[in-house]
Nucleic acid binder design. Sequence first.
DNA 1: ATTTATATAGTAATGATTCCTATTACTTAT
DNA 2: ATAAGTAATAGGAATCATTACTATATAAAT
Lengths: 121, 121
Amino acid sequence: MRYSKQRELIYGIIKATSTHPTANWIYQAAREKMATISLGTVYRNLDQLALEGMIKVISEGNIARYDWNTVSHQHLRCSVCGKMSDIEIPDRQLIKSIKHSHQFDVEKIEMIFMGICSEHN
Amino acid sequence: MRYSKQRELIYGIIKATSTHPTANWIYQAAREKMATISLGTVYRNLDQLALEGMIKVISEGNIARYDWNTVSHQHLRCSVCGKMSDIEIPDRQLIKSIKHSHQFDVEKIEMIFMGICSEHN
DNA sequence: ATTTATATAGTAATGATTCCTATTACTTAT
DNA sequence: ATAAGTAATAGGAATCATTACTATATAAAT
């Protein structure tokens, strides 16, 4: 993966927000800095950044979201305001017990907790 | 929601499999029994069945899957064979601790454990 | 049986994502 | 510094899942 200013721009945009943006949101933000950037470039770079482990992909409700926070964490999604926030869930014990009970080697966990956030209950 | 033989057919197809099928898979299966059924009908009925709590929707990797098993459970997804299987995860304690730590009322949990199943490790 | 309202088939439209290709721009060797 | 080689880009077309639209059909209520 060699350097490109498009990728630097895209990565910078992701790192500067905590809104877990979609590809299209990132594309719109990128266009304000570089008018000619294309949506395909955004997708390709998101894929590559994810492949290199520099960002995380969250797939929920048939639309991908991207997250600069790559340390193991999960998400709370408020059904009122739609906001997605981070939460750390200890999973060592869980992974171990799944290995025992199902002989399944867990490599990646994606949890989404849907409900009502503190501002809307 | 009034009776229709299309819905009965669709529900029957879902109940008869444990493959966590996609809408298209269900549509193909339905067409073998009723040649004129339309994809829109499949989607509409899946939505309605989910709304009534008769089936569960699993959204993973930008494609929805449907599950007749509506009791709380989660999924293991094998990255080799793609098979998705069920697992029960006790979540009472987890919900309670999220309420405490984040003042967030969890209503629904979706967990996907990606890794290697017992047949491929 | 008639009326009323909901469901359907068929098709068009949308939205997210991927694919394609000619062009551009890093990188490396000269 | 220049040229060659390779990877990345822009722009647009194609694909796939899902939703929307509309005229017709069918279940339910009277």
